[in-house]
């Protein structure tokens, strides 16, 4: 096992209770494991929540993270998504301000080229929605930043991931 840092995803089934999110994030913070993203939401079973945690981490530490999460009483199941086919997506909003007509046309063109959705706009501003992988969303932010320097505002939700059925993006 190596010390080289890799991007990995863990999917966690946890008790849907007050304080569980704080417990999990506290556990990771207490051990100085750096999370890139964490998303959480209720599942089809309202007593269970599912978290997707993204980390950039080496093999040995990653094994520890999984073991530490496993020994947590509120954690029902830990799934390592590093080596199995999955689908993963992240929601990203990009708002571009101070647009003239030419800028707006450029935003619409980018959206069309990359399969983004323009979900709102007015005279000077355009709001674009991207649903892509985390790294593709990084690319989109870079592109918008280069095209409209100092005029964009972004917010992103963190990855959610699920095991694939017959096709995957891994």
């Amino acid at each position: 096992m190596g010390m080289e840092m890799k991007k990995r995803y863990i999917s966690l089934y946890v008790e849907n209770r007050i304080g569980v999110l704080a417990k999990i994030s506290g556990l990771l913070a207490g051990k100085s494991y750096n999370m890139d993203t964490l998303t959480v939401g209720e599942t089809e079973d309202p007593t269970v929540s599912r978290m997707t945690i993204g980390l950039t981490i080496d093999d040995i530490t990653f094994e520890q993270v999984k073991k530490q999460l496993n020994r947590c009483v509120v954690v029902i199941k830990v799934m390592d998504f590093s080596e199995i086919p999955i689908h993963k997506k992240e929601l990203l909003f990009i708002k571009v301000s101070g647009c003239g007509e030419k800028d707006k046309a450029e935003v619409f063109r980018i959206a069309q080229a990359f399969g983004l959705e323009v979900i709102d706009y007015d005279k000077r501003r355009v709001l674009v929605q991207c649903v892509k992988t985390e790294s593709a969303n990084n690319d989109m932010i870079r592109l918008f930043n280069q095209t409209f320097p100092s005029r964009i505002e972004t917010v992103r939700g963190g990855s959610v991931a699920i095991e694939a059925i017959s096709t995957s993006e891994q």
Binding site: I60, E63, Q64, K67, Q68, N70, R71
Partner: peptide, 11 residues
């Protein structure tokens, strides 16, 4: 008995 104690400090 605790899997998390194994290979934590010493591999």
């Amino acid at each position: 008995v605790d899997a998390a104690s194994i290979s934590k400090n010493i591999v």
